[in-house]
Design a protein around this nucleic acid. Structure first.
Lengths: 235, 235
DNA sequence: CGTAGCCTTGAAGGTGATCAATGTTTGTGG
DNA sequence: CCACAAACATTGATCACCTTCAAGGCTACG
């Protein structure tokens, strides 16, 4: 018995994830049997698009962007995965899974690397766990569909939608919400399918109007209501 | 015991679906306990976006388009669901599920309507079945991601990609593949996020060049290789 | 101190949307 | 069975949003 998660000292972290809510320590120990903690540095990738998929991951800390190469050789960002997210789990169901995306670390991050065989042996027949994963996935899918519905909307609406989507967090404070992930303009561009320059032009405009502020790469939304208005703006 | 599927006479159909591959008649009977067959006419909807989701569906015959309203009041088409597809199954995992899409019948169609409680009682703990559903879903998701990666590509590439995606069928005959679903130009437009006029202009061009032909609403791809080339065309 | 990555601004040009008008097919009710 | 409405297809002209290209400034890091 190697690599017990209690030995790795990550049990407290795992317990805090909604994924393992209601599970006993022993159950978690079984589900995370023979795992390793993969530490990645900025821009380092967890796995590559089209690689053979032997493992899936749970994000322990930091964040990863899930990307896909485009015909132009650029990258399209499909999702930002945070702490507690599960990546590439649902493709484990395939007989010969291939990663449909690349996972790139944003800043230093840590992820739990779990082998496919574990998914098939221990995760597959755990109905409650599968449900949790399906919930995570359906949330992600709904968010993708929301974006899709904006394809004919002006670029402003797409950016607004992205920002709002990234703060599914506390609506506690009425104003001044900071986006939990530092984002470059290029990353925003790759998320909404636009050019960097266009992003800059629109966000500069917003800064001037006092809707947002950005310091370093942290974006703070000052007037949330105005941003939400822009989401539905019909030009 | 009402509504046995053997009584409804749809067992042979169900057996032919990859979803139930390897299951015994008794198992299928249990999984489809207390179901009804919903017959829909052209443009009739199975369920509506934002409705309370009490049921999920298996398509018996025909096809449905899965749509989502856009801010402009139009509809964005997210997926074309064929015979054998399962719809809205994975949102059953949520405590209070809401349909994230609308399902609209394309021509006369039939679908098996299954209650949520059945999913929780009989489907949830059937690991093999869950895997099949996850496979269906991951295929759909990958296809959505493919489309997403084309967001900066010219409209031609998007249309080409859509058409190719709709013939995941037999690569048997080298040429002349007819798309299994009759599509209006508007539906194509709503799928790729463009205007009807633009679709028409491009497809007329293709017709003139002899790449495709359309009669009624059935599109036949004549020169598949040329269409595939257009998918990656960088203007 | 130079390179690399990110941010910014300006000018020109193109793809595709919008608007408008008309033809064609389908379906429905008198 | 015809007439009218509704849905779909088509073509042209105009215009705006966004991309592309080009050039430059800023900061961090080896």
């Amino acid at each position: 018995m190697s690599n017990l998660i209690s030995k790795l000292g990550i049990l407290p972290e795992l317990q805090s994830f909604s994924l393992f809510e209601g599970f006993t320590d022993q159950q978690i120990e079984l589900l995370c049997k023979d795992v390793t903690v993969k530490v990645t540095r900025h821009k380092e990738s967890l796995f590559q698009f089209k690689e053979q998929a032997e493992h899936f991951y749970i994000i322990l800390s930091g964040a990863y962007k899930l990307t896909r190469p485009t015909p132009n050789g650029e990258d399209s960002i499909l999702h930002f995965a945070h702490t507690g997210d599960v990546i590439a789990a649902f493709i484990m169901a395939q007989p010969q899974p291939i990663y449909p995306i690349t996972a790139i670390s944003m800043g230093p991050s840590r992820a739990l690397k779990i082998h496919r065989s574990n998914y098939i042996e221990n995760w597959k027949n755990n109905g409650d766990l599968i449900f949790k994963i399906q919930n995570l996935l359906s949330t992600r899918m709904t968010s993708m569909q929301n974006q899709r519905a904006l394809s004919k909307s002006p670029l402003q609406a797409k950016i607004a939608s992205l920002l709002i989507d990234l703060i599914d967090k506390q609506p506690t404070t009425v104003d001044k919400i900071t986006i939990p992930i530092p984002l470059t303009r290029k990353e925003i561009a790759d998320s909404v399918g636009a050019s960097v320059e266009s992003i800059i032009r629109i966000m500069s405009e917003w800064s001037k109007k006092g809707l947002i502020t950005t310091e370093d790469q942290n974006i703070t939304i000052i007037k949330t209501d105005k941003i939400i208005e822009l989401m539905n703006a019909d030009y």
